[in-house]
Design a protein around this nucleic acid. Sequence first.
DNA 1: TATGAATGAGGGTTCATTCAT
DNA 2: CATGAATGAACCCTCATTCAT
Lengths: 220, 220, 220, 220
Amino acid sequence: MDAPSPSKASPPRRPSGERDPERTRATILAAAMEEFTAHGLNGARVDEIAKRSGVNKRMIYYYFGDKSGVYLAVLEEIYADIRNAEIRLHLADRDPVDAMRELVAFTWNYFIEHPEFLSLLGTENLHRARHLKTSKKIRELHSPLVGIITILLERGVKAKVFREGVDPVQLYIDIASLGFFYMSNRFTLSTIFGRDLGRPEALGERGSHIEEVVLGYLRP
Amino acid sequence: MDAPSPSKASPPRRPSGERDPERTRATILAAAMEEFTAHGLNGARVDEIAKRSGVNKRMIYYYFGDKSGVYLAVLEEIYADIRNAEIRLHLADRDPVDAMRELVAFTWNYFIEHPEFLSLLGTENLHRARHLKTSKKIRELHSPLVGIITILLERGVKAKVFREGVDPVQLYIDIASLGFFYMSNRFTLSTIFGRDLGRPEALGERGSHIEEVVLGYLRP
Amino acid sequence: MDAPSPSKASPPRRPSGERDPERTRATILAAAMEEFTAHGLNGARVDEIAKRSGVNKRMIYYYFGDKSGVYLAVLEEIYADIRNAEIRLHLADRDPVDAMRELVAFTWNYFIEHPEFLSLLGTENLHRARHLKTSKKIRELHSPLVGIITILLERGVKAKVFREGVDPVQLYIDIASLGFFYMSNRFTLSTIFGRDLGRPEALGERGSHIEEVVLGYLRP
Amino acid sequence: MDAPSPSKASPPRRPSGERDPERTRATILAAAMEEFTAHGLNGARVDEIAKRSGVNKRMIYYYFGDKSGVYLAVLEEIYADIRNAEIRLHLADRDPVDAMRELVAFTWNYFIEHPEFLSLLGTENLHRARHLKTSKKIRELHSPLVGIITILLERGVKAKVFREGVDPVQLYIDIASLGFFYMSNRFTLSTIFGRDLGRPEALGERGSHIEEVVLGYLRP
DNA sequence: TATGAATGAGGGTTCATTCAT
DNA sequence: CATGAATGAACCCTCATTCAT
């Protein structure tokens, strides 16, 4: 009934004796992320999170209140992670075409390297974003990308390298869509099409293809 | 812990007295589809499926063996449904550009009208297609769509309305991606962007946008 | 949870079309005997009896009322079978020592060849003979052996080949005990002693041993 | 369908407040022994074990994993109990005839006082020792009894009070057989013979008889 | 802070039995 | 006589959560 856990979590922490709240919290969170990624919200087991993290189950309740609390903390973390990574790109100052190309590549690579992000997004949408809506932190994490894309588009139009009238939100969703669906649904797609879409070459081809679609669309 | 059920299922069948196995099976399946759509595999409750369908719980096991059996039957049905609908489009005989436009529109509309398809695909991918892989029927449903797209692309190239070198599988995934991600993740996206992506106008705009992206990519 | 079924029952009867109540009843009974032997009363499944006998489950209730009814019918049959076999021995007229030897051999061989008898006796005693007590047929099946043993003992004493004062009931129980426990408990005994007590040679040795014990006890 | 429970178990433990894992485990085990004794493996109810022991049902799974786990623990306990009792007899040092007489008496009395031992052995053999085979503890309980009997036989032969060539395993099985079958099957036997074999006098007579048979067999 | 033990509400599944044809 | 479909009561087991230390 449960999806298999792809990999064992971080090694159980040192026996005890040490009292490091920050570390304990982080350890729980890391284990929880794996568990929720592998099994979704309903399929995840609090016992398993405790076992994986090597922390007493009671501690999970101590730090996060209840299962939903852990789940929400995980959600907030993955959003914070990707936003931080986006900021580190410093795209706004660069050549529009180069910057756009890099944004597409970054997004695609991020999805490849962070399957937990895809899985948890799917899970949260199954629940109609019920948890995310209650988060205060999320509101503060406004994706800076739409703003950056807007700037890039304007500069590209001026430089006559981009067409006019492109909606930055639609474009952002395009970039995410073309990677998300492929990665997130690669299991059923591979089954249906009878070929393994997860192979490294296949991933490379898809990356090039996405770039072609997006930049083709932007061309004046 | 569970997502709310968006709508009540088909009305409970008449009390009894009638013996219609085919109907009983179909009724169970319809209720199960709603339940799995709303709550995923782990979150779905067999009791709830029984209650919704007005059928004795035991019958679910009589017809489908176990919970996974019902789930797989649901999966097979939604795949059969979309494939049948695709076939009914009779795209192969038509003008390449028109046909492609219709395929894009059909896919987008199908996603809008069949949220269960999106949800169930997400659920099955969370489980890494474990159930779908065991299905024999799925293999037979081998989408002829790739074949049709291939034909359309060839004819479009000959007629100089499509560019050369387009991979039909990538194209099919593009068409699905651009709609799937938007619809499937509209809850978190709406939360993040602070605007409701599910409004009818928004859906219409997205549909036009997808058509533009796909046909723009195909142009020679 | 269930003990394995040692052998497949009689082949499923011809599809249908034929209506042979006597045969149907016998077929059900044969399948039930295997099922109760293999799994006890609680472990036996009515569905399995139906499947093994190739008969519709409803027929079992038609012929035997309920599960207990089938079970009791099985009990009555195995008792009738062994009593009939005992009668066919015609021991009363023969030489006392020979007759006694044959009785011992017969009993031992019967246990070997009829494991269902051992298993069902164990099952019925777990239930404190609750079902057997309600049987009217059983009362009429008084074992003739005690009477025969009494006669043999008297003639043996007169002929100075048997000692005096032997209680025929105790002797009968001795003969049965020495074989029953070995056969019935050979699984745990083999495990405890670390050797297979069910091997043909082991069975032969035990048979000789029992004869030695019983006849040794009878010697004047 | 189930045999009646002959006696109520140990009194439900004090409401709570106390945390005594060892005691909780033992309480569960005691209740389980009664339940499995009365109804066999399939007939026993986990709910009933919980109710009898006054322990939350969940605790049964906490301590023993599942129903089979409790059952195996019970099996191991009854074997350990009888082996320990045997060891306490200190037979090896005593006069061979006396020791043998005591062994016979001990075994017979043990069966009378421990009906659970008989019932559980019957149950486990119905399951072909499937559970016992998986036990590691059982191997270690290797009854030293065979060794002791061997020694007694040797010394008896030297002292010319026992005959030669007696197989200690067969002898041990004889001693057990003559008591086991009588006690274990006394319900059906009483029904068949139309007299109550469980009466105290009857038990006494059987005890004397067994001693006579066994010692008679051993006499040179 | 941290831990092992304990809890109660269900969850999936099975079973003997009966109904409608 | 015979059959497939239907029923409801339990049964084993699981899970998130809390208590006592």
